[in-house]
């Protein structure tokens, strides 16, 4: 039986060994130098905790930050907050322990994360946020970079008016009210619709329901199906992101109403753009995660250069229609 025992030990320790070797390599790159030799390669580390790597939007932000910061001589560590505020708070603790020069966050909760941000404030580590804001009292964020969601919502409203081709009709809003960004999108959307209604007494666009689609496919599917039971003559859907719009589209296809109901979504993720090209979604105000990442690094570098930086920078969105989709070289 001796061989089997030996085997079991080997198995267990080889796991640790494999892990050890994997880390050893990374550890060497993270060299901190004393003040005397400043002209060495890495100027410091920037710690990034994203909301979730499961959404390509955030991985684009993270990748852009990594490459942009590298061009300025900073190393970047990216961790996944996994939508779990406790996990993200732990990651911030670990960043502080590691002695990073700056932290970039997409807060998993705009209030609860405040405690961790305060810890970073206390340790003198500057915190930047992008896309999602931290609004906790007393938590200092140097600067925030995000999409202009209000302007994007207005674009979506204009797109909806265009989609309905001057005709009025009933519209469903597939909402995600927990997110501040989505509230702004819907606010902008309704603002434009209201102005349109004031000008057109006869062909009004009426928002008949605002339902929580959770920002995900299956919930978007469910709320669309339910709304069509109550309003079989639905004319349009505004979904606050691509996954919930695609869920809505699936419900329309099942009911055979895909030609009756027009969808306007938001984000411009690859699958959303593909759907626009195929005519499944009418149009998307698209965000530019790469520009968000780039701008954030730009702000950090100018902060490190001793410049005063604005507390908020908004990146405007742009409308993406089928014509754009047909020209887009990134789509199949």
């Amino acid at each position: 039986m001796k061989t089997s025992i030996l085997f079991s030990y080997r198995l267990i320790f080889s796991l640790f060994a494999a892990y050890f070797l994997g880390c050893g390599g990374e550890g060497e790159e993270v060299g901190m130098e004393s003040a005397e030799d400043l002209d060495s390669e890495s100027k410091g580390i920037i710690g990034v905790s994203v909301l979730t790597m499961g959404n390509p939007f955030f991985s684009v932000i993270a990748n852009t930050i990594t490459s942009e910061a590298a061009s300025h001589g900073y190393e970047v560590i990216v961790v996944d907050g996994d939508r779990d505020v406790q996990k993200q708070a732990n990651q911030i603790d670990d960043f502080i322990t590691k002695g990073v020069s700056a932290i970039i966050l997409n807060p998993c909760d705009r209030i609860s994360i405040g405690a961790a941000v305060k810890k970073a404030n206390e340790a003198g580590v500057p915190v930047f946020t992008c896309d999602l804001k931290c609004v906790a009292e007393g938590a200092e964020v140097v600067s925030h970079v995000g999409s202009d969601n209000l302007q994007g919502g207005k674009l979506a409203g204009e797109a909806m008016i265009e989609a309905l081709d001057g005709m009025g009709g009933k519209v469903l809003v597939v909402h995600f009210p927990q997110a501040n960004s989505c509230q702004l999108r819907v606010e902008g959307f309704k603002e434009v619709i209201q102005i349109h209604n004031q000008r057109n007494e006869t062909e009004k666009i009426v928002v008949v329901a605002e339902l929580d689609g959770g920002g995900v496919r299956d919930e978007g599917y469910k709320v669309t199906e339910d709304t069509m039971q109550a309003h079989p003559d639905l004319a349009g859907i505004f979904a606050i992101n691509d996954p919930s719009a695609l869920g809505a589209r699936a419900a329309l296809e099942k009911a055979g109403k895909q030609n009756q109901v027009k969808i306007v979504a938001f984000d411009g993720q690859p699958e959303g753009k593909q759907a626009i090209k195929e005519g499944k979604i009418f149009a998307d105000p698209v965000q530019f995660p790469d520009q968000i990442g780039k701008k954030t690094v730009e702000l950090i570098i100018s902060y490190f250069n001793g410049k005063e930086v604005p507390s908020e920078v908004l990146i405007p969105t742009a409308l993406y229609t089928q014509a754009d989709g047909l020209k887009d070289p990134e789509l199949k």
Partner: peptide
């Protein structure tokens, strides 16, 4: 293990 992996920058996956 979690803390150590965070400190050494191991990806969350």
């Amino acid at each position: 293990i979690q803390n150590g992996m965070n400190l050494t920058g191991v990806q969350s996956y």
